[in-house]
């Protein structure tokens, strides 16, 4: 597989290569949302250039998966191979969490629970400015532990921000355990519905389902897409394992991971 390809497999290879080289974690989180981010940037978001004022906006509320974002920016030609290879080196703009100075990053994130409010503001702006641009916010399921998410959910529903789409990466785990054990989020769909949102539930690794679920529809309220995902998707020993929230790969683990996604080490 050529890492310069625009496929989601090549995006996973970038995630593995860069996190292995930099010896940093959050690999499982980035792999988990690779399909969602790939689908959004290659098939959904209307962004002619990162500087386009009327582009659709994307907020990676779960900022710790930024490596997946950097990978797709590389695929889009917004960051160079040299920039990508600077990931988590001293002086790089590409850190663990996305910073706004990097072309393509609409909002800096890293602190959970803030993205949806900012997205609601961006969506309200589009409405006030009579722009057709849309706003997409990719959140984590455990992020919904944060009360501010529900403040934003109430606000967006009250304002009927139908140009706002939240995508919740429902991988069922968080830093120190499984969500059902730490802070049970179920019934997730009922909760969002009760807050006035339209709810779609999909397989977060199925491109067709992702694209269909996030495409603008006839909703008159904001929409949330609950995307069931597998943490560490594609690498057997990472899948659904808590430790891969933070753990870096050893040489052997890297080789196995690349082999499993069908790439080259």
């Amino acid at each position: 597989m050529n890492p310069n390809e625009l496929t989601v497999q090549s995006l996973r290879q970038i995630i593995l290569d860069q996190s292995f080289r930099a010896r940093v974690g959050h690999i499982g989180s980035a792999l988990c949302v690779a399909d969602l981010i790939h689908a959004l940037y290659h098939r959904v978001l209307r962004v002619s250039a990162p500087t386009d004022r009327d582009r659709d906006r994307f907020i990676l509320a779960k900022g710790h998966a930024a490596l997946a974002l950097y990978g797709v920016f590389y695929q889009k030609g917004w960051v160079t191979r040299e920039q990508l290879n600077s990931y988590c080196t001293d002086g790089s703009l590409l850190g663990v969490h996305p910073e706004r100075g990097l072309p393509g990053v609409d909002f800096a994130t890293g602190s959970l629970g803030q993205g949806l409010s900012i997205g609601a503001g961006a969506a309200l702006s589009a409405r006030l400015q009579k722009s057709a641009r849309r706003v997409y916010v990719l959140m984590s399921d455990a992020e919904c532990n944060e009360g501010a998410c529900w403040e934003a959910a109430m606000f967006a529903a009250h304002q009927r921000l139908s140009n706002l789409t939240a995508i919740v990466d429902v991988n069922g785990q968080q830093a120190l355990g499984y969500t059902r054990d730490v802070m049970d989020l179920q019934p997730m769909a009922d909760r969002w519905r009760a807050f006035g949102w339209s709810v779609a539930e999909i397989d977060g690794h199925d491109m067709t389902q992702i694209v269909a679920a996030v495409k603008p529809g006839s909703d008159r309220v904001p929409r949330v897409v609950l995307a069931r995902t597998t943490f560490g998707k594609g690498v057997s020993y990472m899948q659904n394992q808590i430790k891969w929230h933070y753990w870096p790969m050893s040489d052997d683990e890297y080789k196995q991971a690349v082999r499993e996604i069908g790439g080259q080490s």
């Binding site: 629970g113 803030q114 409010s117 503001g121 961006a122 309200l124 589009a126 501010a148």
Partner: peptide, 14 residues
């Protein structure tokens, strides 16, 4: 909290 987040999104749009 949400008010400040919303204001951030609004200010970014001009």
């Amino acid at each position: 909290d949400n008010m400040l987040g919303v204001a951030t999104g609004l200010a970014d749009s001009g």
